[in-house]
């Protein structure tokens, strides 16, 4: 990959200066503040750390954030695949508009998404009213958290899988078909397996985003401790009570979890590259 760390492979100027500035800016904005969080957590004894994390309220908040984020990511995985399939493989009126619309959860500020979803699913809302007649309550219950997490996660699966499905070699499908495979066999044995790395990556990204999500969730959640209180909100509450140690301990657990998730995503992408050599 390189020539032993000597640095330059060319005669362009500015490597030392730009690298120095990059590392300085990265340290000041990202690395030192994040290190401060871990440093703060070292002020806690292991017992203190453990008792904060295993307190009923913290455990429940973590369970709610991770559990519902996982469930929402599963929904995103399935719905994302269906949406990608429709967008890439079929032609229908409004296809390009729906393709652009997928990015709205990326672009819409989370607080706006939060108040909008709440208005939509509240008991008198456009969707909340008919659902209430069926006896289903979404807003101000854990179901509301679930809905908000589905909303913010959907673009991750679609945008990760879409380019892979577009680039998929049509010849492989032709070959499968000409060898007498029926459509279902071609899809399930030829196409879907080559989408697996992208699907898992999209799933992990949606999961990671939903675990840490705050703005779009807190309005619709109801925020009842132990029932519908997400972990990021508990961090905010502990901060407002000046219980910095509690906030720090929860934050460290969430950070470590998201670092593990990125690591998994990186491994997945490497796996995908070795399975599908560059074309």
């Amino acid at each position: 990959m390189n020539n032993g760390g000597a640095g330059r492979r060319n005669t362009l100027p500015g490597f030392g200066l730009t690298m120095g500035l990059t590392l300085t800016w990265l340290s000041v904005i990202i690395l030192i503040p994040l290190a401060g969080l871990f440093l703060k957590s070292f002020e806690l004894s292991l017992d203190q750390f453990w008792s904060i994390l295993t307190s009923r309220r913290t455990l429940n908040a973590l369970k709610i954030s991770f559990g519902l984020a996982f469930a929402a990511a599963i929904v995103n995985l399935v719905m994302g695949l269906i949406i990608v399939w429709a967008l890439v493989r079929y032609r229908f009126p409004g296809r390009r508009i729906f393709d652009a619309i997928v990015d709205i959860p990326f672009a819409l500020p989370t607080a706006v998404a939060g108040v909008a979803l709440t208005a939509l699913f509240a008991e008198k809302g456009w969707l909340g009213a008919p659902l209430a007649e069926l006896g289903i309550k979404v807003a101000f219950t854990p179901a509301g958290i679930f809905v908000a997490m589905i909303f913010i996660g959907i673009p991750f699966v679609v945008r990760t899988v879409q380019p892979v499905l577009i680039d998929l070699d049509a010849e492989i499908e032709d070959a499968a078909a000409s060898l007498g495979a029926n459509r279902w066999n071609t899809v399930s044995r030829v196409i879907l397996p080559s989408l697996v790395p992208a699907l898992l990556t999209g799933f992990a990204l949606a999961f990671a985003r939903a675990v840490g999500e705050y703005g779009s969730v807190i309005f619709i959640a109801g925020n009842l401790p132990n029932v519908s209180e997400i972990a990021p909100l508990l961090i905010v509450i502990r901060l407002s009570e000046f219980r910095y140690a509690d906030a720090t301990a929860i934050a460290v657990v969430m950070l470590v979890a998201s670092f593990l998730l990125i690591f998994a995503v990186n491994r997945l992408q490497r796996w995908a590259q070795t399975r599908m050599p560059a074309h």
Binding site: L37, A208, G212, Y214, I235, L239, A251, L255, S258, I262
Partner: peptide
């Protein structure tokens, strides 16, 4: 990959 709340917390 850092929760927005944690991004604020580090500066607090």
């Amino acid at each position: 990959s850092v929760s927005p709340v944690i991004s604020g917390l580090v500066f607090v």
